[in-house]
Design a protein around this nucleic acid. Sequence first.
DNA 1: GCAAAAGTGTTCGTAGTACACCCATGA
DNA 2: TCATGGGTGTACTACGAACACTTTTGC
Lengths: 242, 242
Amino acid sequence: MNIPEGYDPRAFEPFAVTVDLAVLTVRADRLHALLVQRGQEPYAGSWALPGGFVLPRESAGTAARRELAEETGLSGATVAGLHLEQLRTYTEPDRDPRMRVVSVAYTALVPDLPEPRGGGDAAEARWLPYDEVPPLAFDHGRILADARERVGAKLEYTCLATAFCPPEFTLGELRQVYETVWGVPLDRPNFRRKVLTTPGFVEAVEGPPRRTGGRGKPAALYRAGGATALHPPLLRPEGRTA
Amino acid sequence: MNIPEGYDPRAFEPFAVTVDLAVLTVRADRLHALLVQRGQEPYAGSWALPGGFVLPRESAGTAARRELAEETGLSGATVAGLHLEQLRTYTEPDRDPRMRVVSVAYTALVPDLPEPRGGGDAAEARWLPYDEVPPLAFDHGRILADARERVGAKLEYTCLATAFCPPEFTLGELRQVYETVWGVPLDRPNFRRKVLTTPGFVEAVEGPPRRTGGRGKPAALYRAGGATALHPPLLRPEGRTA
DNA sequence: GCAAAAGTGTTCGTAGTACACCCATGA
DNA sequence: TCATGGGTGTACTACGAACACTTTTGC
């Protein structure tokens, strides 16, 4: 721990610890982020990531789920099942002009959800297409960009894409997630084979129910399998961020 | 930011913010971690990860480099060139029995270094083989395990392995890093081809100097190239953590 | 019928795997 | 000389890329 001689942490101006949430979804074939409009200074009127203070007896992960439930209006039970992942912690001394705030950022991947009802705290909450996100308050633009990059990379070597889908989904919907996040088209037959031959990626829903996404042949339904890692990975074409 | 009505962060018992360092190296074909022996309660006498408090006007990354320089006895300039990466932040309310401490953990990958001179602060510092690390103070065992897992995974799809090597190294030394961290033998000819055909992974040191690691034919020298990502990845055999 | 999406099959090239083999050095 | 590790070549295989084709729906 290496506490310097005579160091008393309480003698310093205290640190505040917050969580910030980069909540992403795929909606109408576009990547969207959940943003809130700030009602107070600093950055009043600006858009920002949802988040808030970690309470004294709470872990950051617990705080993140609590805030997510508040902001999305989903029940605690529903939120408990969502994929939430610690992204990174942002600690620049001047990232908040008011005081020293260290923020633990989380990324949440959610299926297309109903429009959020501005989470109680006056601020308006809204899904915004990723490409149309205005400059954000604090360093939230940076956080959101980091989240997007992380998610794109994780799709390659994990089964994470299913987190963007409803409990039962078609392979077309799953492929749409990849195409939307990566911004490149994928070969449908090859994608299908890759997913189906990876053990535990998806499992077929036995009952012969089928569903249509509009026109075209109805597609078989699948749900997420037990696997989390994806070996060998599903690399995006060109191997570069598109 | 979503500050609850009437919330004053200063009214709560303050959070302390620390950094903890999982410093890894490859030494004598084994993975080693840099550990310090605690001189004071709690956990007096136990081994722990090096680390310390983040100062009021310092970012966590700056604090991590400062602590690393102190613990390893290296100059600031040398430490500035090392690979240091934020791992994760540990926030369980009771992870430190004294007070609420949130710790930002960093992983540092360093080439084989001289034995550290117990960083000034009374505590003894030592390289210990990863397999022989005793139970650590606080949640540091968990942090170290997370670091090891992260490093193993990153070797697959980044050029990170060069961070374990001195500025000029042979392909045999580089391969040794993979074999040590993954715990599996790799085919030498295939490894060589993979590394050399990946643009920017390594670049040959032009001068015809060669070096021997003991017996055998002298090997050509290389230094780290400009690339960071590795496409396509270099997957470990079996695709599983060995 | 036509468009659109699902699902199946086939070909081709390349990258990884598993070797065999030669070279240069130290003991 | 032998053991050890560096360096080169090669055949086999598997997987991904590309694309043709059939099926089933809505309009």
